[in-house]
Design a protein around this nucleic acid. Structure first.
Lengths: 339, 339
DNA sequence: TTGAAAGCGCTAACAC
DNA sequence: GTGTTAGCGCTTTCAA
């Protein structure tokens, strides 16, 4: 049914070898033979069998992406955009993208292992790095190609891209302090996540600079979801600390926090200021629109994939690490400290 | 480097044939040989080479999912949950999931074509069907296995799962009419999308029943995004129609519409009622929480994948079509008609 | 119950 | 330039 090299070879009275080389444009094939072969291939509608080629080449031309899912519902807008970035770059580079989702832990590690050992992928994109990331430890140990979005604690001897979240948060704090805020609460993701650490680090650094001016910081850990932000903000509002500003470590939690604040009759941006991080599309259309730090997730996906492709192709990446400088997006969710 | 059947065979002094059959638990292999082989395999850490197996079996054990992306930013929470559902079911069934994203049109069709012709996938999951869906037409023509989430206009001779959106919308309208609403505006997605048609159909049917009681309907087309909902609501509010309720065809647009309404100083659920569709996590935490129709996207992904797997395995699905009955989730975004 | 031989469709080494 | 031969790692007839 499917047309093979053999069919073409038979048709034009040559061998499969010749046909193969002609189609792959080897130098040692005569120009008229090439023409002949190509025409025959076109006529018959030849499409190479990927599987056969991959087996022979001992390459899968496939990139693996295992999304770490927490909780049962998995609708982080973050991932879908990242996925699109990775996927489009992969497609452009001639790579397939093999996607799965696994909760961090045993199953996740097994997925990495089996994908590698059973020769399903040539390399991995790692996303949402953890402090002592078992995935990265494993891949490094196996000497298996990968590129990551996010750093880890410790040695950074692998290609990665990351945003300078610490700096982003520093600017958030500076912005808020410029508005007069001193009592600031921060809603943090689980601290095993590296980006949480960076963001918290930025917050702390900013607050340190405010110490002489009476800056006070309360950090509460949450879970990255809107619901988590909502619940955590409620805890915060019940607390005697009574912050004038809430700095959430991502937009989803910020938007959840806004609901909590508004439910109590406070006006966001007046009674309480709130900031996010990521600049997801929703941030522009929250009520009020959310002041946040931009993170170009689609492009980050693209670039992470590009880093990996460079490794796979054996091209020496001149720059194996990319740190993006964030920009503050000022909208209407912050205002001067109330009296 | 990698352990092959040959290595095991050599080690125990049998042939690769025997080893292969032993590992695959064929009946015609002696129990002690099986034991022997298995132990040797374990010792050597044998993992079958997927590529080789696939080539031989002429199956890829891979399911394709090409997400139709509109616009540049692609953060529909819808897709990430659907993806997780499909992916987990696929993994459980021993299938890989090959994901790409393509804007509807030429490129998209080429992706389907090349994935099929180059033997990359065994079947496809189709998502977000269009009225005269070129993907489905093509797959049907090629007689290539697929299952879809969503129906099409015309013959439904393929396995699909869908929610009875028409009925869902009917219930929304009934709910609103019970609250006294008569002048209702509807924000619709592009009408080439099948689910848009079903939802609109439900809306119209509901309004038809209200005609004798002065029911009036205005439908405006938008683009499924929060921004689109926002813009369209603004158009609606500038219009002389002045609806007392806005029925959005998905949650994202509903939430966008809420922003627009609120920006004009109206109170959602009092001055104007708003409803959505999908029940994305965000809907619970919007301000006010959104009354909407539930659509269990994760489960739908799971079931769509299951339908496909049944086809691939040659199992006759007793029920090739699944229609889910929706449930109305009443929250706080609707109230009685203002005077 | 096991082995020998063939082949999935392709590419690569080597000879001519 | 082109053909011969071999082999990627696996499964599957067919014989023994």
């Amino acid at each position: 049914m499917a047309v093979t090299l053999k069919d073409i070879a038979k048709k034009i009275g040559k061998t499969t070898t010749t046909v193969s080389r002609a189609l792959n444009d080897y130098d040692d094939i005569g120009p008229e033979t090439k023409e002949l072969v190509r025409n025959a291939a076109d006529e018959l509608g030849y499409i190479p069998n990927t599987l056969a080629r991959r087996l022979q080449k001992r390459r899968t031309d496939t990139i693996g992406l295992i999304l770490p899912t927490f909780g049962p519902r998995f609708s982080d807008p973050f991932f879908s955009e990242f996925l699109a970035g990775v996927g489009n770059k992969a497609a452009a580079g001639g790579y397939d993208l093999l996607v799965s989702t696994r909760p961090p832990g045993e199953q996740e590690m097994q997925a990495y292992q089996s994908n590698i050992l059973s020769h399903r992928v040539d390399g991995f994109i790692i996303v949402r790095t953890r402090a002592d990331d078992p995935r990265i430890n494993y891949l490094r140990k196996m000497n298996f190609p990968f590129a990551s979005f996010g750093r880890v604690e410790g040695v950074l001897d692998f290609p990665y891209i990351d945003e300078d979240s610490a700096n982003g948060m520093l600017r958030v704090i500076e912005y808020l302090s410029g508005l007069g805020h001193r009592r600031i609460a921060c809603i943090s993701p689980p601290l095993e996540l590296m980006f949480a650490r960076h963001r918290i680090k930025g917050v702390k650094e900013g607050m340190d600079r405010l110490r002489s001016q009476g800056g006070e910081l309360l950090i509460v850990e949450s879970d990255l979801t809107q619901r988590g932000g909502y619940q955590t903000a409620n805890i915060l509002l019940d607390n005697s600390f009574s912050p004038t500003a809430i700095v959430a470590c991502n937009d989803l939690m910020a938007i959840g926090a806004m609901s909590a604040v508004q439910e109590r009759g406070f006006v966001v941006g007046k009674d309480i200021s709130i900031t996010g991080f990521d600049n997801i599309p929703m941030a522009e259309h929250s009520h009020p629109p959310l002041t946040t730090v931009n993170q170009p997730i689609y492009q980050i996906g693209t670039m992470a994939c590009e880093l990996l492709i460079q490794v796979l192709r054996g091209e020496v990446a001149e720059k194996q690490e990319i740190i993006l400088q964030p920009s503050l997006i000022v909208r209407q969710s912050c205002g001067p400290t109330p009296e």
